[in-house]
């Protein structure tokens, strides 16, 4: 009898394992959770291609986990600098998700980075924030950055009024935004037309006006040298001399090229300034997001 009881206990203990295994197998949630853990492991190892492959493979099975899947896909794409697709995924994360704020702020930032400023603004307006909260301050900072990116100083002042310096994650960036605004306001944007006219009057002067002094001096020396050469041929052989005609033609080409080059130099200089300011503004929009959500 003693053996019989022991046998029954033994059978019960061993039969418990298959039941437990069956329960585990039945729980699709558990499988998905394990898969997501594995994907997180891959993301930590910066194996982004494999993570995306697995996220896409989950497909319909992850209907109930769509927020997590969208967030992870968006985050991986953000790390891969595939910002348009990243924004698309991140902005699908629902309000109930614990990563809603992170997703939408980063989604808006990604849109700002690829130049879709209006769309980024819309996303930021639609983020529900409590008055006086850090999220509200963060939204103001992002919107002020977007206003600067669009060179809309009135809009910037509307948001910069809310810079209170209360949140340590963005105190420095609030100050930086103000300095960017001042630089944009004070920046002289040279005109390509004026540069061309200056170079027509004195070769190379347009480039000096564009801030490229050494290029201007070299241009002047080239055109002057060609001009003197043409004069020399004219003096010796007259206006019909073939050497004068060739030399004058080359001089004319260089002269005209210098005028066009000055206009291009000004445009390039303006683009360089604009690009530098955009990068600085985007950087100061990005840092508080990393500080606040990581």
């Amino acid at each position: 009898m003693k053996y019989c009881i022991a046998l029954i206990v033994l059978l019960l203990v061993f039969s418990f394992f298959p039941v437990q295994a069956a329960l585990r197998l039945d729980g699709q949630d558990q499988e998905l959770r394990t898969e997501l853990d594995f994907i997180l492991h891959l993301i930590t190892r910066e194996d982004y291609d494999a993570s995306l492959y697995l996220l896409e493979r989950i497909g319909d099975a992850g209907r109930d986990w769509s927020d997590s899947l969208n967030f992870l896909s968006g985050w991986v794409m953000y790390r891969q600098k595939n910002l348009e697709l990243s924004a698309n995924k991140l902005l699908k994360v629902g309000k109930e998700s614990p990563v809603f704020y992170k997703s939408h702020f980063f989604g808006a930032y990604n849109l700002a980075h690829i130049g879709q400023h209006q769309e980024a603004q819309k996303v930021l307006y639609n983020i529900p924030v409590a008055s006086g909260s850090m999220h509200e301050a963060l939204r103001c900072l992002q919107l002020s950055g977007l206003a600067l990116l669009q060179n809309d100083l009135d809009e910037y002042f509307k948001y910069s009024m809310s810079f209170v310096g209360e949140h340590h994650v963005m105190v420095e960036q609030e100050r930086n935004m103000e300095s960017h605004r001042r630089r944009l306001e004070e920046a002289r944007t040279p005109s390509p037309l004026v540069a061309g006219m200056l170079s027509a009057a004195v070769p190379g002067l347009g480039r000096i006006y564009a801030g490229k002094t050494s290029e201007g001096i070299i241009s002047f020396l080239y055109v002057a040298a060609l001009g003197f050469t043409s004069y020399d041929f004219y003096r010796g052989g007259g206006a019909k001399s073939p050497m004068f005609i060739i030399s004058a033609g080359v001089t004319g080409l260089f002269y005209a090229g210098n005028i066009a080059g000055s206009a291009v130099a000004v445009r390039r200089k303006n683009q360089e300034f604009r690009y530098e300011m955009e990068q600085r503004i985007l950087f100061d929009m990005h840092i508080p997001l990393r500080n606040a959500f990581n």
Partner: peptide, 8 residues
């Protein structure tokens, strides 16, 4: 052509 000889 002294000037031209110098530049060209």
């Amino acid at each position: 052509y002294y000037i031209a000889s110098f530049f060209a």
